[in-house]
Nucleic acid binder design. Structure first.
Length: 426
DNA sequence: TCTGGGGTCCTAGGACCC
DNA sequence: TCTGGGGTCCTAGGACCC
């Protein structure tokens, strides 16, 4: 073993090399997902800069943009107003999440045909572990290419695919493959592949961490190899340990199919800051309604409810509450959320730009109480309401809170709920 | 320039218990 | 009037990812 090699791999446990040998992880990512779906649905957009996320003068950021828009310097996460400055001729689209979700479901159905070990990283991104399926395929890279071909043919969307012996290398390979390409990190070539990649490529190195590392004159992944593990640990905590290992291409995380999500949340940033307590409570009720719809769809009950407020100065506060009995019903969750919200709002003199509600510590079924007779009446009622809504549209059956909401908002088919009145009182 | 929405994970500090 | 040490649970905040 050369000096360099020993330095590079010094932390690999002796047994891990043997353990990892033969693993094959594929990372697959749909290129410019939302924008690509919009182009597919409306071919007139093709060849023009498309920005999905909102209209030019709205509050908000670009969720995705196509490669034409990127030529103007626009990227995901950029404020819409700024994107408009860079490209006034860009086509700005609010986007339709439900349509993207339908494409996503189709995407994952295809992936599961190749292996049961699929981990969804987001709507448009997944890891596939092919290791267990070795006998099915002539070679791993050939199998990965087949997955890519199938998805592109059946969805009509371009994907980038990376192959490697673990998740981090597969993910970095995909980055190299973009757009629409295929890249495999071959065994023995890990060091060459990693050395000159920028530190910003490593997951976990965000804007804050980049500033710190660049001050230490560390710009490339190879520069990280000279940093002691203890130094990274003291700078970034547990995340630093990950950086130490991943910068060397070491990653033993399994590809993991998540069965129960950790949390479900809904939030809204208003077109203008709101100060009126009634409007805010009405909106909170609307969010609780959407949240509990999500819980019912997944048959989930929540042990923790959390309310988030972001003030006009962008400062964000949350209040949360641990429940003795997990909840799913709208009215019960709204009562908790209202208490939490008032705790936050009563002490502030600022108006709000955002409210949100989150349910976490989720379980699939509510444990039976020893003292209350079991009744699923509320649950069945809620499911019945969902069915009626689905059939006749939103607002057929209105609770008191929703009536209030209805008086304050109007529903515009292309814009969603829009404030009817200006906020005056608190 | 003025900063979305939906998530995951980590950390620090305080309360509480023995 | 003076109060340790260790563990666990809970809350709040924040970095980061897509």
């Amino acid at each position: 073993m050369t000096m360099k090699r020993r330095h590079f791999g010094e932390t690999a446990k002796p047994e891990s090399e043997g353990l990892m040998r033969g693993r094959c992880v594929v990372h697959i990512d749909i290129d410019a997902f939302f924008a690509a779906v919009e182009e597919l649905l409306n071919p007139a957009l093709k060849g023009k800069p498309v920005i999905v996320g909102g209209l030019p003068h709205e509050r908000g950021v670009a969720a995705t943009c196509n490669y034409e828009a990127r030529r103007y310097g626009i990227h995901a996460g950029m404020p819409l107003r700024q994107a408009y400055q860079l490209c006034p001729n860009g086509l700005f689209i609010r986007g339709n999440y439900q349509v993207y979700q339908a494409f996503s479901e189709k995407f994952f159905r295809i992936l599961y045909e190749y292996t049961p070990d699929v981990e969804a990283a987001s709507l448009d991104e997944a890891y596939l572990e092919l290791t267990r399926c070795r006998p099915l395929y002539a070679s791993f890279s050939e199998a990965a290419r087949r997955v890519k071909g199938r998805v592109e043919k059946e969805l009509g969307l371009k994907v980038s695919v990376g192959v490697g012996p673990n998740k981090i290398l597969a993910k970095l390979a995909t980055k190299r493959a973009k757009p629409a390409g295929f890249f495999e990190v071959e065994p023995g070539r890990e060091e060459d592949f990693l050395r000159d990649l920028g530190i910003e490529c490593l997951p976990g190195i965000g804007p804050k961490a980049q500033v710190i590392l660049r001050m230490l004159n560390i710009h490339k992944i190879g520069d990280l190899w000279g940093m002691p593990r203890s130094a990274l640990r003291s700078l970034f905590g547990l995340g630093g340990e990950e950086v130490y290992l991943q910068s060397r291409g070491i990653d033993s995380r399994p590809v993991f199919t998540r069965i129960v999500p950790k949390s479900v949340s809904r939030e809204t940033t208003f077109l203008e800051d709101i100060w009126d307590r009634r409007l805010l409570l009405a909106h909170l009720a609307y969010l609780c309604d959407r949240l509990t719809l999500g819980l019912r769809e997944e048959h989930l009950f929540a042990h923790v409810i959390e309310v988030k407020a972001r003030y006009s100065d962008f400062k964000t506060e949350v209040r949360r509450c641990l429940l003795l009995t997990p909840l799913q019903e709208m009215t019960a969750i709204y009562r908790v959320a209202e208490d939490l919200f008032l705790k936050l709002f009563s002490t502030s003199r600022l108006s709000l730009r955002l409210v949100g509600v989150r349910a976490s510590d989720l379980v699939r079924a509510r444990p039976l109480s020893l003292f209350e007779p079991y009744s699923d009446r509320e649950e069945r009622l809620a499911v019945a309401v969902d069915r009626v809504r689905e059939k006749y549209g939103f607002g057929s059956l209105l609770t008191v809170r929703e009536r209030m909401l209805d008086a304050i908002y109007e529903f515009e088919p292309r814009r969603g709920f829009v404030l009817k009145t200006a906020s005056l009182t608190r």
